[in-house]
Design a protein around this nucleic acid. Structure first.
Ligand SMILES: NC(=O)c1ccc[n+]([C@@H]2O[C@H](COP(=O)([O-])OP(=O)(O)OC[C@H]3O[C@@H](n4cnc5c(N)ncnc54)[C@H](O)[C@@H]3O)[C@@H](O)[C@H]2O)c1
Ligand SMILES: NC(=O)c1ccc[n+]([C@@H]2O[C@H](COP(=O)([O-])OP(=O)(O)OC[C@H]3O[C@@H](n4cnc5c(N)ncnc54)[C@H](O)[C@@H]3O)[C@@H](O)[C@H]2O)c1
Lengths: 259, 259
DNA sequence: ACGCTCTTGTGAAGGCATTCACAAAATCGA
DNA sequence: TCGATTTTGTGAATGCCTTCACAAGAGCGT
């Protein structure tokens, strides 16, 4: 167990992608998702002063198995050395380049409520290749306040900001009821990638990518497995009981049935 | 496009699951992840007063295709009526039951910094089947303060709280440097499911499930596709230019190459 | 009672992703 | 120079998931 399959997202609209990289190869989506993980692990290694790493140890640092890691890296080309491993710095550069992180991408954050404030202050974005270039909210009390040295702008400015800063990625942290409307405006202004925290399905034209983060859904997935474990334990307990007893039904809840 | 494949998570450790439901059938992981989505869509429909829904319209409300939805629901049993559709209330109950949401599960939240504060105040958890039963931090300045009517407890109390409230699910929102340590304590206290926000790979025993949320990774995945689009646009622009020009290289960045 | 229409439920096919397992490449020491 | 050792890169096999396409079932009007 330890985690679910490969965490096939709770989320997920539908579509397909393939990318032609420098070498002309194609990178599977599942691989792209893991490249981000490898990058994180490589950064730790570099910080620790490691210059070279084997697929085995990088894989374990990233929490995947080494065959998968090697196959993933093979889509980028051959940057390892047989018998030795991968050069940490070179591989980092390769992955950054594949992910398009060499240009410190500008990101807009829409909605500076509870979640938005936390995100705006999150150091992990900056350190991993993103520059928050615009903070937007429509609450007059928030507009003009500063978060991490950046002023919150009124949502009337949304289109101007997206164009002025050449923003292609936006994060939506507004209530679900206005998420589609905000999304439409972002798309109209030229945004092509959206990370959506609102529990709403966004409709976008085909050239726009949406990824969603649904925290309650994540918990529900955990709940399913947790429940499964409990039911399993029940079955086993009952089986054990049946020996001494006859036909027991343990006290545990056991939700898997037919309601 | 519209979204990536099925948003194979950026995250994901490795493992496999299968669940025997009431009918003795097995529910694929990919399906479990989508059940949470369907549930959300069903709740909206119920709020709107809809009593019955076809696979076609429920699918579109959830942003998936209808064949997939029907196949997914078929793992729970036959709760639809041919020629008519699904009863919203009945289906809701079925999914809730499958996900183990009929017992308002108690959740612990560890770390009440920027992110933790936002999560603690998030209404979406309560409305979708979870009760935040414990808030834990080790910062003396936070302990004793109240968030949504619940007092923040000192982390020394962690084990006691988990046992007292019979908590099996925990959310980790502490710095990455202490995430493993917090995780170990949670597991030792009896937690079996963890949602991890810290950018760190957690090692857990096999009976414990971990799901991770890595926001920077999400952005990096978006970045990859965004970059791909830009490169593609370049190629096309160059091809067009080549006709009038000879051999042009457009101004655009074009990061997909070999660094 | 019957035929028409609608929509589910599901075998079968096809497509991806993961895992296996090993030949090929590189280094090192003798 | 050569053999031992290490570790990559990748065909091939396997297993999931998705998608297709349609028979079976349910309601409805006549
Ligand atoms: N708080 C969390 O931990 C959390 C977790 C997961 C998901 N979410 C989701 O994220 C979204 C935001 O959550 P929150 O807790 O921060 O809510 P919030 O109410 O605290 O913040 C929403 C913010 O959006 C702003 N806003 C509203 N309409 C706007 C518009 N048209 N343009 C620009 N800004 C606008 C509001 O002024 C407010 O500041 C919600 O959809 C919520 O469901 C929140
Ligand atoms: N802020 C964000 O939007 C965001 C987004 C994604 C991921 N994250 C991650 O989530 C985690 C929290 O982020 P944050 O911005 O809230 O950080 P933060 O520094 O604001 O909060 C961390 C909290 O954890 C508490 N803490 C530290 N050690 C603890 C321990 N041993 N036991 C209990 N509590 C402890 C601290 O007192 C603090 O209140 C980090 O790992 C961060 O990388 C944050």
């Amino acid at each position: 167990m330890t985690a679910h399959r490969d965490q096939l997202d709770a989320l997920g609209v539908a579509a397909d992608h393939r990318q032609a990289n420098g070498a002309g190869r194609t990178v599977p989506d599942a691989t792209v998702a893991r490249l981000a993980l490898y990058l994180r692990a490589l950064t730790s290694l570099a910080d620790a002063g490691t210059a070279t790493v084997s697929s085995e140890s990088l894989a374990s640092a990233a929490g995947v198995n080494s065959a998968k890691l090697r196959k993933d890296l093979s889509y980028l080309g051959s940057y390892g050395v047989r018998g030795v491993g991968y050069d940490v710095e070179l591989l980092t550069e390769q992955i950054r380049s594949t992910l398009g992180l060499n240009q410190n991408r500008a990101v807009a954050l829409i909605g500076l409520g509870h979640l938005g404030q936390a995100l705006a202050g999150y150091a992990g974005f900056a350190s991993r290749g993103f520059r928050i270039a615009a903070l937007v909210d429509n609450d007059a009390a928030l507009v003009g306040t500063f978060v991490r040295g950046l002023a919150v702008q009124h949502s009337d400015e949304l289109e101007n900001l997206v164009r002025a800063e050449d923003i292609s990625i936006a994060v939506i942290a507004v209530p679900a009821s206005v998420a589609q409307e905000v999304c439409d405006r972002l798309v109209a202004a030229g945004v092509t990638s959206i990370l959506n925290f609102a529990p709403a399905v966004l409709n976008v034209p085909p050239h726009v990518d949406v990824r969603k983060v649904d925290l309650a859904a994540e918990l529900q997935i955990l709940s399913f497995h947790d429940n499964r474990k409990a039911v399993q334990a029940d079955i086993e307990a009952d089986a054990a009981l049946a020996h001494s007893n006859g036909a027991g039904l343990s006290a545990r809840a056991g939700q898997a049935g037919t309601a």
